[in-house]
Structures are given as structure tokens and as C-alpha cells.
Nucleic acid binder design. Structure first.
Lengths: 344, 344
DNA sequence: GTGAAAGCGCTAACAA
DNA sequence: TTGTTAGCGCTTTCAC
């Protein structure tokens, strides 16, 4: 328990104060406080005791400014109200902690564009973070690239093609393919693919593209519904297609799948009785109870790889910009066959 | 688009560099860069242009160190894999942004104790944040208190009785009461209350206590099952009680409710046919499809109030420690009657 | 309107 | 082992 001196404002206590109280110089106090360099054990003890007594908290800004380096890694995060991002956030955090990396996070509102993103990026860069983990699609390669040779950047979740920016990402094309194969194997040959437009969600776009081509290659006909960001967008069109004979609706995300299920219910239809439905993400608690047919994205693997890569980049910091290849690791999730999709 | 000078490391560009390039002094460059103080418009233009060209990014640590104050508010967060916390996080972020506050976040692993928490707290305090929003129960009042008079502290989500620490929190006792009243009104008189133990989840404990007393006051008999952190803990006991004649199981969280639903299904039972089930939180996407009977906690209101309070405290910074009362605002959620609970 | 100078709190050689 | 001496990059009076 650090108890601050009565009336003595702990956060305004400096090393000088501690040093003076302990009767040593600032330098000695600094060393003893961080336990590096040379100092007499008993001196340290005294210094530590004084620091404790005064409620000293090292001023990180000053320390890192003086030291010329930062011990923390910056994390740019997309809105965490989406459980998939919340979980990724959580796992990145755990992993970083396991590996002894300190993370500071700044988030960007879900639907905010350019200015805000750049602002957040600058906040982090302004802190001179040792590295940057980017877990939001909202920021573009062009915005990141100028800094790629000054600080290691790892993109988590989404693929990135820019040179010098490493990634640990979901293999969304494979995800789409796996789901589509499943639907094909159930005998569906007339399928709706419901997805956010490319500029709305790149991940959904990748999944949907893969679904479509896999379906087509498998001899099925595809009705592609490209929707807005809201999960309910495009649901009506999808249902129309069902009434027109489609036997399955493949959604590019579980949120859309939920929206479809609601609409189905409202329309007095059911899955898989009247139509098979699939989603993608597999993160929702309770998805099993709903019997959602989905694909569990490999959040843990992506988080672990992102942090591991960052740590490696941080260690080999002596390396020149081109000494190491750009790391790009895709991870494939696992199909979760549920009860919302069945054979025709 | 900020494009850094070819070969010129943007993050190593200092005001001095910008000043030199623009042919002015550091002082002038500083003023022009932040648009405060006196300077000729055309001078500023030139300086801004050079800064842009060189890819200058202000070193926040140095700036705040020199200025002696910080523009950011620190947020301590509990593991965000829980959607309820993820959403709170998201809303706090939005709200802070709306009000022009910058937030930096550090998270603490879900099940980690003391050391880790204190460490995170010190990381934030070390940055000399202007204020602290604490959205994790893991940190105790005792740990916070020493700093309460040095930096405004607002606890979000959980109630806090310590003097000087403000709060915007869920009114969990009312939540428990509302749910219990609902169950009573459905005619249940033999009810299981399934909750995490007090030291496992204080919120659950509060809810469960309120449920119990409300039920008892309503003439019902209560079987209290105090479980561990895992949602499945205590579920078997609850089911045993049901076989013994209990007609309803009230869970202190939706996670437990889901666990109960699973167990019910596995046992070939159903809700509300064989037993009524309720939860609490109401955050899960898809809860409506499952028909969960729950209570939607007022995340938005809590987030808004927390940030608003923080902003007010920050404005009235001149005020002495005792000039303003400790703010403590409870918020009540809304009952969501679902199909998992029905009349006896 | 602009510049010179004195730090902010801490660290890191280098002496002692 | 400990102290001295320079700064880190920026802000901010206060003269000019």
C-alpha cells in the first residue's frame, strides 16, 4: 500500500525529493528506484522506503523522454462494442502481458472517418510508442506507411499488402470457402450471399467473394446482396430471394445472420425448415443455443501472432529496415455446423 | 496526408528542425504549431508547411512535461471480452470523444489480482493523466484513495463508497429487485437464485442479495446458490433444486442464464415449460432471439454520466479538494421480459 | 511578432 | 558506490 505523506501531493513528488529525503543524489535515487546500475543494497532500501513514504510515482513522460525510448506499445482499436473486436482486444492484451509488453490503447469510433483516425494515430506516435499494433480497418495503408520504417507496425485482424507493415490476420477468403463448401455439401444450389459492401466491411467483402466463387464453382447459382453497415440492411432482399426459390442465405457475419433469423421469425418462417442460414464469426456467447451455423474466427491465434511478431521486431531493433522480411500470417478458423443449416 | 521527407525520419524531427527549416526560432515554431499566442499568419503558414513536409509529429511526452499538464484522461478497464464491458468501453470512448476528452486505456486481465492492478494504475498515474476513470472492480478503494486528492477519479459501473471518489454506477440492488418482482408476479414461490460469490463478482452479489430479499418479502422461499466465476459453476445444484420443486431459476448474469439454458437442454428440460429462468445484463446480441428474460443495464447512461462528471471535475480544477461534493449517481436499467420466464 | 533563456523530471555517461 | 554534468523535446515568461 503506498500511502502518501499527509498533505504531501504524491504525484508532485520528484526523484529529487526522494533523493533529498534519503540523503543521496538524484542519480543514485534513480538507479536504486529502477534497480539498475550500481548502488549499495542498504542505500536502495532507504531510498525505496522514502519513495514509498512520500508516495512517489515516477513521471513516465520525463523518464522516457530522458531515456530516449519508450517501453510501451500502442494499440489502435476499432470500436469494442462488437464482441469480435472486444475479444481480440482482450486477447491482445493478455498476450502482451504474458510477454511483458505494456500496451496503451486508443480507440476510434466505429463509423468515424479520416480525421479521427489520423488523430488517434498521432496521439500514439506522439507518445513515441515503441511499436504499433493496428486492429482497425479504418486506417489505411497510406496513413501507416510513412511511419513503417520508424516504428514497427503490425496489423491485427485484417490483411495488409503494404510493404513494411506486418500482419497477423484472419484468412477470410478461406472462411468464405469453408462455409460455402458446407452449404454446397448440404445440397443447396440456389443461394443468397448477404454481405456488407466492400467499403463498409472489407472482411465481409472478402468472405462474400470467396463464398460466391466457391458456390459458383460448385455449380450453384448465387444471388449477391450487397448491403450497408446496419445488420438489417439487405435482409428484405434476401427474404425476397428466398420466396423466389433460394434455399439458403449465407451471411458474411453473425450479426447479419441474427438479423435474418429475426426477419424469418417475423415472417413466420423458420430455419432450417424454410431456408438454411449461415453466418460467420462464431464469437457470440449463446450462438450454440441458437444453433447458429457459423465459423469461429481464430481470434486467439491472431492475437498471439500479432504480439509475438511485435516482440520479435522490438528485440531485433538494431536491424536495418530491410534486414527482416515483412511478416504476413493468415489464420483459418473452424467451421461450426449448427442447426440453422440443413440438407435441402 | 503527411509524407515524411525521403530518408528523413519523421518521428525524429523536432520543433528545432521545423523552426530551422522555416527560418524562425523554436519559440515561434511552437506557438504557430499549436496556434496559440502571437505570430504572423504568413509565418505560421510557412511553419505549418515545413512541419508537414518534414513529417513532424509533436513529442507528446516532451510537450506535456514542459507544459506541466496533460490533456488526456486515463481509463482503467476490465477485460473486454465480456460484451458488457466491451460496450461500456465503447460508450465511454464515444462520450469522451464527443466532449473533446482524449482517453488512453490500460486493461487488466480478468482474473488477475493486486500487483497487476496496481501496476496498471501506476502506468496511468505515471503518465500524469489529468483524470482517471476506473471501470474495473478489481481495483480497491484503498488503492485509489491516496490519489483521489491529486487527480479526479470517477468510478464507472460499480458503486464506490470511498470519500472523494466519484461514481456513475449501475443500481444493481434495484435490478435484482425488478427481476425478482417480475418473477413473483408470475406466481413463483420457490425460487433458485444463482450468483457468483461476493468476492467473485460484487455486482452479481448485489443483484442476488436484492433478489433474495425481494423474493422472501414477497412470500417466496429462496434457494441461494453461491457459485464460482465460471458460468457453469453451481448450475447442477440449481437443477437439483428444480427437480426438488423450484419453479424458477434467477441468475445474477446472462452468462449464467445461458449456462442454465444449456444444462436444461442437456437434461431434456425446457424453459419456461419445466422451469422459468431469468438473467441480468441484457447486452448479448441475439438475446431477443433466445427470448432471454433479463434486465438491460443502462450502459449508455453510466458512460455518459461518468464522462460528464470527469469533464466537470476537470473544468473546476481550480477548486480545492473539498469545494465540490463527491458525485455518486446510480442508474437503473429496464426489465426485458422474455419467453424464458412464464407464469407458474 | 519574435527570440533568448530557463526549465519540466528524469536518465546516462563520466568522474570522483 | 555515488555524485556531477549534460541534456531529452518542448513550453513559456519576458525582453526586444
Amino acid at each position: 500500500m503506498s500511502s502518501s505523506e499527509p498533505g504531501g501531493p504524491g504525484l508532485r513528488v520528484t526523484v529529487s525529493d526522494v533523493a533529498a529525503a534519503a540523503g543521496v543524489s538524484r542519480a543514485t535515487a534513480t538507479r536504486a528506484l529502477k534497480g539498475e546500475g550500481r548502488f549499495a543494497p542498504e542505500t536502495q532500501e532507504r531510498i525505496l522506503a522514502e519513495a514509498e513514504r512520500l508516495g512517489y510515482v515516477r513521471n513516465t513522460m520525463a523518464a522516457e523522454l530522458a531515456a530516449g525510448r519508450t517501453g510501451t506499445v500502442g494499440l489502435m482499436l476499432r470500436d469494442a462494442s462488437n464482441p469480435a473486436y472486444g475479444l481480440l482486444f482482450s486477447r491482445l492484451q493478455d498476450e502482451a502481458h504474458r510477454r511483458g509488453l505494456d500496451l496503451v490503447t486508443v480507440t476510434i469510433g466505429a463509423d468515424v472517418q479520416g480525421a479521427e483516425q489520423v488523430n488517434a494515430l498521432h496521439r500514439l506516435l506522439g507518445m513515441r510508442v515503441a511499436g504499433l499494433i493496428v486492429a482497425t480497418g479504418g486506417i489505411t495503408a497510406a496513413q501507416l506507411e510513412p511511419f513503417a520504417d520508424q516504428v514497427p507496425i503490425v496489423r491485427a485482424g485484417r490483411v495488409e499488402t503494404a510493404e513494411g507493415i506486418h500482419t497477423a490476420h484472419y484468412d477470410d477468403p478461406s472462411h468464405g470457402e469453408l462455409l460455402a463448401s458446407h452449404v454446397l455439401s448440404l445440397g443447396h444450389r440456389r443461394v443468397v450471399v448477404l454481405s456488407g459492401a466492400e467499403d463498409v466491411s472489407f472482411a465481409e467483402h472478402l468472405r462474400a467473394s470467396a463464398m460466391s466463387s466457391t458456390l459458383v464453382d460448385g455449380g450453384a447459382s448465387v444471388i449477391l446482396v450487397s448491403a450497408g453497415a446496419a445488420p438489417t440492411d439487405g435482409v428484405d432482399e434476401a427474404l425476397d430471394a428466398v420466396r423466389d426459390g433460394a434455399t439458403a442465405v449465407m451471411c458474411a457475419s453473425d450479426y447479419r445472420q441474427l438479423a435474418v433469423m429475426r426477419a424469418l421469425r417475423a415472417a413466420g418462417l423458420s430455419a432450417p425448415g424454410d431456408v438454411s442460414v449461415t453466418g460467420c464469426d462464431g464469437i457470440l456467447p449463446g450462438a450454440d443455443l441458437l444453433g447458429l451455423t457459423t465459423l469461429r474466427i481464430p481470434v486467439e491465434a491472431v492475437a498471439a501472432a500479432a504480439v509475438e511478431t511485435m516482440q520479435r521486431l522490438l528485440s531485433g531493433s538494431d536491424a536495418e529496415s530491410d534486414s527482416s522480411e515483412t511478416v504476413r500470417q493468415p489464420f483459418v478458423g473452424t467451421l461450426v455446423p449448427g442447426s440453422t443449416a440443413a440438407a435441402v
